[in-house]
Amino acid sequence: LVRYRTISKIPQITLNFVDLKGDPFLASPTSDREIIAPKIKERTHNVTEKVTQVLSLGADVLPEYKLQAPRIHRWTILHYSPFKAVWDWLILLLVIYTAVFTPYSAAFLLKETEEGPPATECGYACQPLAVVDLIVDIMFIVDILINFRTTYVNANEEVVSHPGRIAVHYFKGWFLIDMVAAIPFDLLIFGSGSEELIGLLKTARLLRLVRVARKLDRYSEYGAAVLFLLMCTFALIAHWLACIWYAIGNMEQPHMDSRIGWLHNLGDQIGKPYNSSGLGGPSIKDKYVTALYFTFSSLTSVGFGNVSPNTNSEKIFSICVMLIGSLMYASIFGNVSAIIQRLYSGTARYHTQMLRVREFIRFHQIPNPLRQRLEEYFQHAWSYTNGIDMNAVLKGFPECLQADICLHLNRSLLQHCKPFRGATKGCLRALAMKFKTTHAPPGDTLVHAGDLLTALYFISRGSIEILRGDVVVAILGKNDIFGEPLNLYARPGKSNGDVRALTYCDLHKIHR
């Protein structure tokens, strides 16, 4: 019993810090008490220290592992850092350059016999395009090294910054494609005289377009951006097909006994025919423009016929181009109408809503002055909100995010209106959640004399007048207030005048 009563005193000691020596009952000389009392004092002292730490809000209350900052290894790049964003855009520009100039170089340097010394005699450094290609190869190699040090988000939505895990993730992902696209074939085969082989191998750079397509997928929600990307894709495919079309004609031209190829026909049409040795002929500019003209006309199913396939190889390629053109029509131009419709969806919704308003007016036989006010209010409210119901949009977000959005939407009023000066951010967040926005066209009466005042109004834009009878008592403008002081009276009061809008007004109100 003594032991039980001794232990039962522990909660009292913990909360009230009572010393055991003052209790005459606990001072009985028993061996059990002498053993338990020192333990009680020690526990009391420890609990006292913990309570003191909690009340003082000291940093040592938290466990040590929670006080440590997340460790980022040296030379690790955050995937959302500004440097990584700028670097990704730079790589994107280099990939676009590669997609345009690599097929052009591979096709127009394929057994090209233009006048001038061969590239091997001039030297590697004197070729501007080769120098640019070398810079692109170096940048792609540097990009691989950067990807080995860039964080990523795993399946659990955690940012991984450990170098080993980053390397394994990159090896399992895009490393092989990036490595093949970054191989400097110019340096590996330079001086061997195989410019045709170098041009063909350099087309491996186009593998990076797969990554670019995935990154550009984030802009699919913007109709104008999608339309622009589709047109660029169409032009890029036409450019690639033009390079292939020229390569076919250029390879067949020296081996044909009869002059029936499209390059021969082009030379005869523009007065620059090929001679018996295969030299001469149109310039590279004429060849490229004509090839691009043929691919565009074939892809769009126009086909004027002034550039036509004559050999079997050219006919087979033309059939493939027609098939590609039909697929592009289905996948690209078939979506253009939907994209344009999405661009004008706001206008369509406006006309639909206006039609419903006019049908309501016609069905209920609203008189002319009231009908005009109804239409003007709808037009003004639509121009202010673009038909978007803010309350319906915010309803799907958590309250903390709703408060931040409301604070942002009402920031101008909260910053410049005098009653809100000096208020804490928590108070402003709470008030912003209570605001209701209303609009009024010129001549609209917001409050009639004798109406119950259940709200306090803040003028965000425009001006109003307060009338008693036919006498203008006051004219209020931006950041002015009218209405009933909230919670100042037990019952809502009545208006002693009319409140009429002089201009288009936007008002925020808080109800009782």
Rank of each mutant, 00 (worst) to 15 (best):
F108C: 01
H351Q: 03
S105K: 15
S194W: 15
S337W: 03
T290I: 01
C232L: 08
A392H: 15
K418W: 06
F190I: 12
L188N: 10
P369W: 03
L431N: 01
R421S: 08
I332M: 04
V226S: 15
H364E: 01
L374M: 07
E221L: 01
L409A: 06
E314R: 01
A106T: 04
P82D: 02
L229N: 03
S81W: 07
S331I: 07
N312I: 03
Y350P: 01
Y246W: 01
K215G: 04
H351S: 05
V302C: 14
E112R: 14
L241P: 01
Y329W: 03
F83G: 14
I183P: 01
L355R: 10
M231H: 05
V131P: 01
R214V: 05
V321K: 01
H416D: 13
E376I: 14
Q269I: 01
A449L: 07
P367M: 03
A182V: 10
A238E: 01
T76C: 04
F363M: 15
I237L: 13
I177R: 01
I324A: 01
F228S: 09
I135A: 04
F360C: 02
E157K: 13
Y377H: 07
Y350D: 01
S277F: 04
T295A: 15
E112W: 13
V100I: 10
D257N: 07
D133I: 01
Q269C: 02
R218T: 08
G116T: 14
Y222Q: 06
R214D: 05
L229P: 11
A291I: 01
V321D: 01
S276N: 04
L134R: 07
I77V: 07
A235M: 09
A130Y: 04
P70Y: 04
W75M: 12
P117F: 06
L197A: 04
P273E: 01
I361E: 01
L401G: 02
M251V: 01
C400G: 10
I361H: 01
L413I: 10
G334L: 03
I72S: 06
Y344V: 04
P117C: 04
E115D: 05
T438S: 11
R371S: 10
L299K: 01
P103G: 01
A238K: 01
E114S: 07
